[in-house]
Write a protein that binds this DNA or RNA. Structure first.
Lengths: 338, 338
DNA sequence: TTGAAAGCGCTACCAG
DNA sequence: CTGGTAGCGCTTTCAA
């Protein structure tokens, strides 16, 4: 262990000695753990200032058994979707003394479990889990070791809580919007079939059509993977099939982008020839051409709720359970048809 | 300090006692600090397994004075630009025992300085700084306390190193490309005037025109701020001015998106009526309509270089100084004109 | 309100 | 190759 000569490494004891008090008193002053008389308080303050004393977080961590850190499991650092939620968590933690420790699981259960172990090994005080492929049971088990708040799964335990937004409802709104604009032949670009949100959106699509007495056309349901390239491929297949359709509802914005490009390549105009609706409302959807009508997921707010919730759990307080809602944001990618 | 009853908190001493060796030996085994005889080694392994012993990182951190953590200062969590670099840093750190501690400075020098202090207080072993508004001198000063690797500024010190990509050259390439396609009236959407990269790109634009004997038209240089809305506004102003132009070179992809939307709103086709070139090559640029021709910044690789570099510095090794290069990626937003 | 002292769990020095 | 031991810098009883 090299002692940094430029940093004299001043300790509580040093401060205490110079201020003519005990280390305990300095500690009490620092943490507000107990009353400290006015004169000593002032003396300590002065010495801290003069010596430029900074408490050693590492020592405090060892003593208190906490790292003042919350682990955040995301699936991808480069996804606009997760990035928003991350920013929300970060925002909630700001100024609380807690810092987020972010790891990425890449939608792979094993990797997620491994990263979480790393987080626990680092003694995070709480865990925020953003989607992923872990089983609810695994998370419940994990929550015996550390409090957990999750997004993208419904969960209820003493030290675990998880919630979803109403994806089904969001999808219904999107399809209703298309229907209200006269569309009947609506294609749906699905998400991964093992993804709960994707499934809920598919169900919303199906049920809404059914509710309106519209027979589902299986050829209009196009498998894809929540990304641009699969959205593009899906629509290319659709176009090749010769199926009639006047609108596309994509299970997320990324696949809507891909769909839009496939249309563009065939000189099919949006919304003049085909209407498109997405899901998520990524930042960029406001600036696509045309700006995309989509179901907004308020992910920053979600992240903030998660951050606040895990803080509450760590502090042993009751956490707020209100969560933000989905909402359709109407832009310019849908046109009324006869 | 609450003792978690579900976790009996087994220590080195416990392991040592059960294995019939000393704590020191267990520690040596754990860290490979010294040879441990085969029999003791096996005994220890068994006990660790049986007791499910996990070393307490917090104690190790205190003892070694290191948190095995590298601080990463980014400017925005939600920017695709920074996200890529972050992912690169994360990738470089993977499996090294170091974890990134990510904070965001939001392009505000004060906030950046504050976050960095927090990072140092948490005893990060190194710092990666992604752009920002801190002065080089401040960073050099900081580097006395912790080794630093920075991106977006040229820096050279014993414990600090910073590098830029050749933005000037990238801009030259972009303009050359436009010129080669017959464009002469090329508008330029600038970035923030206090941003070095933005300035370098502007200089590249200017010099390339000059080199080709083209007089710069000041009305074609449009101030903007590296985001969609200012790019949009810039082109709206340009359009309103009635200035002739056949191409737009945007200082970054985001402003190119905004420009593209402004054009769309006026029914000006890209690339048929106006060609557009961006800078950065965000993921989404592959799926805009049309896909955007742009100067690629290999940010993931940059991040990886940064990660490796800071690790090398921390380890006292010599760091590699080769950095990735910019390159023009030609897609579909530029058309040849007469 | 204050101080002395006992560790938190680990690593590393020093003997052997 | 191994064990004893002395802390890392802090917080927190316990007693005064």
């Amino acid at each position: 262990m090299t002692k940094d000569s430029s940093t004299p490494m001043v300790t509580v004891h040093e401060v205490a000695r110079v201020a003519g008090v005990s280390a305990a008193t300095v500690s009490r002053f620092l943490n507000g753990t107990a009353r400290v008389s006015e004169d000593k308080r002032r003396a300590i303050e002065g010495v801290i200032e003069r010596l430029n004393y900074k408490p050693n977080v590492l020592a405090r961590n060892l003593k208190t058994g906490s790292s003042r850190t919350v682990g955040v499991l995301t699936q991808s650092l480069v996804s606009g979707y997760f990035a928003d939620a991350l920013a929300g968590v970060d925002d909630a933690l700001q100024g609380t003394g807690y810092a987020p420790l972010i790891v990425s699981g890449h939608w792979h259960a094993d990797e997620e479990a491994e990263r979480i172990e790393l987080l626990i090994a680092r003694r995070v005080d709480g865990l925020v889990i953003l989607s992923g492929n872990l089983k609810d049971a695994q998370i419940l088990k994990l929550s015996q070791r550390v409090p957990i708040v999750a997004f993208g799964r419904r969960l209820e335990g003493t030290r675990a809580y998880g919630f979803c937004l109403d994806n089904y409802r969001g999808a219904c709104d999107a399809v209703e919007h298309l229907l209200a604009h006269g569309h009947r032949d609506i294609a749906f670009i699905t998400g991964p079939s093992d993804h709960a949100d994707a499934l809920a959106r598919l169900a919303g699509y199906r049920d809404t059509l059914a509710r309106h007495g519209i027979l589902e056309q299986p050829q209009l349901v196009l498998p894809a993977d929540f990304d641009e390239s699969s959205g593009l491929a899906a629509v290319e297949r659709l176009l090749a099939s010769g199926q009639r359709f006047s609108a596309i509802f994509a299970a997320n914005d990324l696949s809507a982008y891909g769909a839009r490009l496939a249309l563009y390549r065939r000189d099919i105009r949006v919304p003049d020839d085909v209407s498109v609706v997405g899901f998520d409302d990524l930042h960029s959807s406001m600036y696509t051409t045309p700006p995309l009508t989509t179901v907004r997921q308020p992910l920053f707010d979600v992240g903030r709720c998660l951050g606040r919730a895990i803080l509450a759990m760590i502090g042993g307080e009751k956490m707020a359970r209100e969560m933000p809602e989905l909402s359709l944001v109407v832009r310019e990618s849908v046109r009324r048809v006869a």
